[in-house]
Amino acid sequence: MTFSITVTPSGRQFNTEDGETILAAGIRQGIGLPYGCKDGACGSCKCKLVSGVVKHGPHQEKALSAQEETNGFVLTCCGVAQSDVTLESRQVAEEGAFPIKKMPVRVSGMEKASSDVMLVQLQLPAADTFQYHAGQYVEFLLRDGDRRSYSMANAPHTQAQKPSLELHIRHMPGGKFTDHVFGAMKEKDILRVEGPYGGFFLRKDNEKPIIFLASGTGFAPIKAIIDHMQHEGIDRPATIYWGGRRPADLYQAAWIDEKLAAMPKLSYVPVISDALPEDQWTGRTGFVHLAVLEDHPDLSGHEVYACGAPIVVESAQNDFTAKAGLPAEAFFADAFTSAADKAGE
C-alpha cells in the first residue's frame, strides 16, 4: 500500500511505497527532510508526529527514547508509515533539490595530513555533472553492500576547474573501510559513490553571525562551506572553533591562515583537549563547545553549524540551547556516526 506524507509547516507532500521508510521516500522524491546517519543511531531525523501511525524498525535509545516515542516523536530514517501521516519537520531543501546519483570515481590523490587523517582526491566522470551543496556528503558503496559516509571538503564551484571530490578520512583501526584506505588503496583505484546526501549546508535567508564548530575531521564540510562563502562573496561574521586531542589533529592550519587573510570577518579559535608538554601548546584547552560558551554566553542572535563526533554535537546542541539561548532552529549539525556507533558499540 502507498500512503501520503505531509510535512508541516512547508506543506510539501509525497508518497511512500509498501515497507519504505519515510526518509527514503522523501529522498527519492526530492523532499528535503533533516537526517544524518540514516541508521537509527544519531537522532538527526527526529520530528513530531502530528497525525497518523508510524512503525519503527531497529534504532538506538539515544536516537529515540521510549518516552519520546510515547510523546509523539518519530525517526523518519527507520519509521514506516502505516497510514497517511502528517509530520512537523523543518524543510531543509527547496523543491528541485540536486539529484542523487551513483557514480564510479577514480582515486587521483592521497596525502597524509596527519598520522591518522588521509586527504583523498576522487576524480569524477568528466561527462557527468555532479551538483551538491557545500557541506553535503557522499556514501561509498562497498562490495558487500555496506556504506560509508564522508563529507565533501571542496566547494561546488571547484567542479568547474576539475570534476573531483576532496574527502578527509580518519583511520579507525579495525575499520573495514579505513583499514583499506590506509593500507591497500592506491591511486587509480576505482570506487563507487552515491550522493549528494544531507541537510548540512549554509542557510542564506539571514545575516546572523555564524559559529562553525568542528571536531577532528568534522572540519571537512565546514571547509567546503567557508570556501563557498568566499566564492559567493558572503561576508557574514563567522568564527571557526576547531577541537582536537593534540595539535596535529588540527591538520589544515595553513589553509585556515590563508582564509583568515582573505576574509576579514572570519576568525579562528583552535582548542586542544589532551595537550602534552612536548606539544608546547599555548592556546585554548578543554572541550571545544565549552570554549564557544566562554566566548559567547548569549547565542540568541547566532547560527551554529556543528560537525564531528556525536558526543561533541549532542553536547553543543544541548548546552547552546539550554544555557546560551540559541534557538533550536538555528542549530545545524552533521554528526560523524561511525560503523561502531551505528552498531551501538
Rank of each mutant, 00 (worst) to 15 (best):
A81H: 00
D39P: 02
Q67T: 11
F331K: 00
A316C: 09
T76V: 08
S151G: 03
G174N: 04
I100G: 05
F73E: 05
G135S: 05
A97Q: 10
E187Y: 07
E207M: 01
Q123S: 12
A275C: 01
H157F: 13
H168A: 12
V53F: 03
A24L: 07
E345G: 02
G199L: 03
E88R: 14
E17I: 03
G199N: 13
G198C: 10
E194W: 01
K162G: 04
V269P: 08
A113Q: 10
K188E: 12
A291N: 02
E258C: 02
A155Y: 05
L213P: 02
G325R: 00
A248V: 13
R192A: 06
E95D: 14
N154T: 10
Q91C: 13
A134W: 01
D84G: 08
P237Y: 00
S4I: 09
P125M: 14
D235V: 06
D274V: 07
T8R: 15
F336G: 04
Y132M: 04
P196E: 14
A184R: 15
S273G: 09
V312L: 11
L142N: 11
S273D: 04
E94G: 15
Y251V: 08
A316D: 04
N318E: 02
A113H: 02
T321M: 07
R106F: 01
A291R: 00
L23T: 11
F332N: 14
Q252T: 15
A324C: 06
D249T: 13
R147F: 00
A93L: 14
N154Q: 06
E187Q: 14
Y241W: 05
K112Q: 15
G36R: 01
G40D: 06
T321G: 02
P34C: 07
S83L: 12
T285A: 08
P209T: 03
S215V: 03
Y268G: 14
E314I: 09
P270G: 13
P264R: 08
V181W: 04
D227K: 15
D116W: 12
H231N: 10
F182V: 04
A113M: 12
A316S: 10
A335Q: 05
D189V: 12
D295M: 01
N15A: 10
I169Q: 10
A24P: 07
E61P: 07
E17F: 00
Y251C: 13
V269E: 11
G11Y: 15
T21N: 01
V193G: 00
Y150G: 01
F331I: 00
I190R: 12
G145A: 11
M185Y: 01
I226Q: 09
Y197K: 02
G32A: 03
E139N: 11
P237Q: 07
A254Q: 14
P221D: 12
V7E: 03
K48A: 06
L23G: 14
S44G: 12
V120S: 15
A339Q: 13
K259G: 10
P125T: 10
K102M: 06
K223W: 12
A324H: 03
S273Y: 01
K101W: 02
S215W: 04
G199W: 06
L23H: 13
G96I: 07
A160N: 03
V117F: 13
Y35S: 15
V120F: 03
W255G: 04
M263P: 09
I31R: 11
F287L: 08
A93F: 09
D227I: 09
